[in-house]
Write a protein that binds this DNA or RNA. Structure first.
Lengths: 155, 155
DNA sequence: TGTGTCGGTTGCAAATCGAAACCGACTCTA
DNA sequence: TAGAGTCGGTTTCGATTTGCAACCGACACA
């Protein structure tokens, strides 16, 4: 896992971090996944300042992660729903939950668990190799140049 | 996936977001996973201001994610290595990479790929149910109260 | 006519950010 | 032995971002 010789500009990770890599946005996403849709609801649950919440919602909508749709007229009221793109963020949130549960949990165990609808298992999903299906950790993987990689001069 | 009736204080996700949920910390972690260990190296690759990097490294060390160890005396020089706790953050970074590759990628494909050492598959790991082994997405899972859950009055 | 809800916007003080300069302790070169 | 360079930071400073609180329009309900 050593290859200091890659260009990292425009790294996929960096791009994602730019969009969802702050505490406030993650809190909003958590509530969205938990079913919150309305401004007031999101504000109560996250505890964010209203202007910050408004700002984050606008940015999430702008990035196509949430969709702002009117759910009533007179007075106009809007709600924010996860798009497909937003739903794809699920593995990241699961990752955060799993790590927190393992390393930062209070004594009483996690506040929230998740259940696999089809088989009923109550446990957080794990990473597995899509080729062989075996569970994997960082140690089992190594980084290699991707199709878009640009090698950098080493000297 | 609707249950606005949970207490979320001290949520595992929130705790984790507090620690690694900012762009700068994520960049440092990315480089750590790519093998960078020294201050100057981390500074160059992340492009962070030196004071910010110093601050993040201190916080990561304080949270037990990186370990600061002297690798030479006279003059004293230190390097930062991932601990076990830090290595456990891998699924989160994979999640960020995967999402970015799918939704924010440039035309040329990802800059970096990962390879499963034992079977050789070059692909990002996917989430799977630890019970039945089936790949899962957000739609396949539902939230349920965990062992530490505290139900809230619905009023 | 008054009170409350909802979805924001505005103003302001405080915290946080990045760039650049500086620093001690050393090594290497001439 | 003087000068330049490396390494791992700290300090300073101006600009951006943050949270808090107050305010707002449009409506519902009594």
């Amino acid at each position: 896992m050593v290859w200091e010789t890659f260009e990292r500009d425009n790294c996929a990770l960096e791009a994602t971090a730019e969009i969802v890599g702050d505490r406030q946005t993650l809190l909003v996403l958590r509530e969205s996944f938990l079913g919150a849709r309305r401004f007031g609801e999101l504000q109560r649950q996250t505890g964010l300042a209203r202007n910050i919440l408004a700002d984050r919602l606008q940015s999430l909508v702008g990035n196509g992660i949430l969709e702002r749709r009117r759910y009533q007229e007179r007075p106009e009221r809007f709600e924010y729903r996860l798009t497909e793109k937003g739903i794809d963020l699920y593995p990241i949130l699961i990752g955060l939950m799993e790590w927190g549960a393992k390393h930062e949990a209070g004594g009483e165990g996690p506040l929230v668990s998740v259940r696999h609808k089809t088989c009923g298992t109550v446990a957080l999903p794990r990473l597995a190799c899509p080729g062989c299906g075996e569970p994997v950790t960082a140690r089992d993987m190594e980084a290699v140049p991707g199709p878009g990689a640009v090698l950098r001069e080493t000297a």
